[in-house]
Amino acid sequence: MAPVGTAAHAWTAMRAIAGREVTRFLRQTGRLISAVVRPTLWLVVFSAGFQNVLGVSITPPYENYVTYDVYMAPGLIGMVLLFQGMQSSLALVFDREVGALRLLLTAPLPRWYVLLCKLVAGALLGVAQAYAFLLVAFLFGVDLPPWGALTVLPALALGAFTLAAVGLLLSVYVRRLENFAGTMNFVIFPAFFFSTALYPLWKVRESGSDWIALAARLNPFTHVVETIRFALYGQVQPLSAAVTLLVGAAAFALAVQGYDPQRGVLGRKPRDDG
């Protein structure tokens, strides 16, 4: 890894890259609204419908019987981060199509650092949106511990980072905006449904779907959700936190390799603007 020139340069570049992402995000009010409305709909419609159908037993981190909306909240926070992760990857695909990626990749900075800046920008936006939804959840009377809003911050940052890194990795392989909708379908939906976002694992096993339970256990998104779930109660789920961290680090490393013209796929393709 090549070092970044000076700390001041690194910081200035980070501010420029993250600042651009934030400016673009703020201009797209539709994105902010849908980021909050989407999980809110799930929260309202789903939890109202299933409140009495799904009893959630007392499993850690819960010390009491919890209602379904409380169970769902971490999964929906995860959904916010998941969408933002894919959005930041979409932003890179967009940048590639409008030529902004060239400008970024020819900046006098090591490529891994440029990608890290993009990742941090995406993660920041993810955390901000997660808090916006958390506020909505509180307003809707979801019974989460108030101090949970604080203790969840590291988990949100970690989850946002990991999902943004997965998005970054995807952007290496998804080269056109048109292909992106398909990728969303094959990534977001399976990641969300084959996870503990909507039902606890034991519930899935109880219904006899062992393979779904296994898929959910192996799904990194499950671990993002569980990390958030425990953090809301001031607890750390070591396995989930470790898996989340490792997946994030691995996805980032692979993405850096993918964007490296000497080793990655980008340098081999003719006449492309990577």
């Binding site: 340069h9 200035t12 501010r15 420029a16 600042g19 651009r20 400016t23 673009r24 900046a107 006098p108």
Partner: peptide, 17 residues
């Protein structure tokens, strides 16, 4: 972005603040 924002972004990439 505005012209100024475009240029400021580029300045940032080159370490000018």
């Amino acid at each position: 972005l505005t012209v100024e924002q475009n240029l400021a972004y580029h300045a940032g990439l080159h370490g000018l603040a």
